[in-house]
Simulated assay, not measured.
Amino acid sequence: MRSKPFSPIQFFYGPSWVCLSESFVNWIFDYLKEHPSFSEYLFNSLNPDESIFQTLLMMSPYKNTRHDYLHYIDWSEGPGKPRNSPNTLTLADYDKMMESGYLMARKFDMDVDKGIIYKLMKDI
């Protein structure tokens, strides 16, 4: 059974891998204790790991303290693409990815374009 949309909160999406300060983690625990419906909603959602911390951060007093984590990820929207899923990188993304200055990249799929993976292995 699907949940109804969660109140007036705007959800944000991003990577599953994050580094959180102790003060922000404490704020999260306090918020979740005061708003159990937020956790209940995410329990039944598709990608809570790619939205919970990002959404909480943007709702918190820490929203202007975020730092880049050096991953190249293309979250741009496209026809038929879910908003909460990063694009699969292909050879067409190679130059932008290499010029980004980021140390890591996501998301690759051998069934979509193995050429990008082989090019990265050869060049790096």
Rank of each mutant, 00 (worst) to 15 (best):
Q10Y: 06
W27S: 00
S16L: 01
P15Y: 00
N26H: 03
S45I: 03
I28H: 00
S45E: 15
P5D: 06
F11N: 00
E50R: 05
P5L: 05
H35T: 12
W17S: 10
S3H: 07
I9H: 02
S21G: 08
S39V: 12
Y13D: 10
F12L: 04
Q10S: 07
N44C: 15
S7N: 15
E40S: 15
L20M: 05
E22M: 04
Y13S: 14
S23M: 06
F24P: 00
S3W: 05
L32V: 07
I9C: 05
I28A: 08
H35K: 08
R2T: 10
F24S: 01
E34Y: 02
F24H: 01
E40H: 12
Q10R: 13
S51G: 06
H35F: 04
S45D: 10
P5E: 12
I9Q: 10
N26C: 00
P48V: 07
W27P: 01
Y31A: 04
L42G: 03
V25W: 02
F12D: 10
S39E: 12
S45H: 13
E34S: 09
L32R: 01
G14K: 04
S45M: 04
F12P: 06
R2C: 09
F38K: 01
S7M: 13
S23G: 02
F43R: 15
Y13M: 06
F29C: 11
K4R: 07
S37R: 08
S23F: 06
P5N: 04
E50T: 04
E40P: 00
F6G: 08
L20H: 01
W27V: 02
F24G: 00
F6C: 14
L32E: 05
W27M: 03
N47Q: 14
K4T: 13
H35L: 07
E40C: 12
Q10L: 08
S16Y: 01
N44H: 14
K33E: 12
Y41K: 03
P15C: 15
D49Y: 09
I9E: 06
E22T: 07
N44R: 06
S51H: 05
D49H: 06
W17V: 07
F29V: 11
I28K: 08
N26I: 00
Y41M: 06
G14D: 02
P8M: 06
V25K: 03
F29R: 13
S45C: 15
N26G: 03
F6N: 05
Y31L: 06
